[in-house]
């Protein structure tokens, strides 16, 4: 539309050229659409459709244990959800889990990146070793921690705790310690990701501005606060967004380590939805929980993206 308006209002001698340009652009657009169509359809089939089906399911009572009660219930599942204490607890657990793991990943990752940047030798080795946890499957990581690290007496962490005079702890049996443990596990696995991104971003900062800042008499702390941090901001926000999405929907590591227990101490919302759907076989209510998680995720990512755009 805009192109036509410009063309007709434009200088007459320019008309043939811009006409030609418009046809070209149109052809290009059609070609692009043809190229995109398969991917678009695949995306539609694998994400949009299941999502809509999920929302649809959440409006039904679908109880595989009591099939005779099944039927359309409208918003009933959501009404139940709002007064379900276990939902609110799991939401809180999700938020604590997400908030603390993301904060820890960014802080530790940034500290490591700053340290490694100053290393004269061995940077390459450090990167290779650091990336190892990331390439492991979360389920494997869960198993490693449950057996190698946290097992009473023999696990490395427990062994260290005993030697540090803290005594053997029931790392996965005590509600608070279990929460600390799953947070530590997630942080252990994913901090290298934050570290790699921030290191790459740090390495791309020009060196001369730090020299200028030194001559301008900025202390090391001022250089970090006034130069490094603002320049890393886009990378940090990006890491926060990506890691928040993942932490909100974390599953395998917690499932293999505590399965949400003891009790519901480490039961994040995702896990609750899973248990409801596939252990208690209440699929309609499980879907409602999943939709609630989706809404929470959308709200939080909305806030984060708004933060990204803000100055």
């Amino acid at each position: 539309m805009a192109t036509t308006a410009v063309t007709s209002a434009g200088i007459a001698s320019e008309a043939p050229r811009s006409d030609f340009g418009r046809i070209l652009a149109q052809r290009e657009r059609r070609f692009a659409a043809a190229l995109l169509a398969p991917a678009f359809l695949a995306l539609l089939a694998t994400t949009t459709f299941p999502l809509l089906f999920l929302v649809y399911t959440s409006a039904f009572r679908m109880d595989l244990a009591m099939p005779f009660t099944n039927g359309f219930v409208g918003f009933e599942n959501y009404q139940v959800l709002l007064s379900d204490d276990r939902f609110w607890t799991s939401l809180l657990v999700s938020l604590v889990y997400t908030g603390s793991t993301v904060a820890l990943q960014v802080i530790i990752g940034l500290a490591l990146a700053l340290l490694v940047m100053d290393m004269k030798r061995g940077q390459g080795w450090f990167r290779v070793i650091a990336i190892l946890p990331v390439v492991l499957s979360p389920a494997v990581v869960g198993m490693i921690w449950r057996t190698f690290m946290l097992a009473p007496e023999f696990g490395i962490v427990d062994f260290l705790a005993i030697n540090a005079g803290l005594g053997s702890k029931n790392w996965l049996g005590d509600p608070t310690l279990a929460m600390v443990s799953v947070i530590a596990i997630h942080t252990w696995q994913w901090t290298p990701f934050a570290f790699m991104v921030l290191l790459a971003s740090l390495a791309s900062l020009p060196e001369d501005i730090y020299e200028a800042a030194r001559l301008d008499r900025a202390s090391a702390w001022q250089r970090f606060r006034r130069i490094t941090l603002p320049l890393l901001r886009p990378a940090i926000v990006m890491v926060i967004i990506m890691r928040t999405m993942v932490a909100l929907t974390a599953f395998a590591a917690i499932f293999t380590v505590t399965a949400g227990g003891p009790g519901t101490a480490t039961e994040i919302l995702n896990l609750y939805a899973y248990r409801k759907s596939f252990t208690e076989l209440s699929i309609g209510y499980g879907s409602a929980l999943a939709v609630a998680l989706l809404i929470v995720t959308i709200i939080i990512s909305g806030i984060l993206f708004a933060m990204r755009r803000a100055k």
Binding site: P206, D208, I209, E211, R214, L215, A218, I227, L231
Partner: peptide, 20 residues
């Protein structure tokens, strides 16, 4: 002596302006 403590102002060949 560290550059900070020399009381020197400099214009860099590469300008070295703070981009943000």
């Amino acid at each position: 002596t560290d550059a900070r403590d020399r009381d020197i102002a400099m214009v860099f060949q590469s300008y070295a302006l703070y981009p943000h």
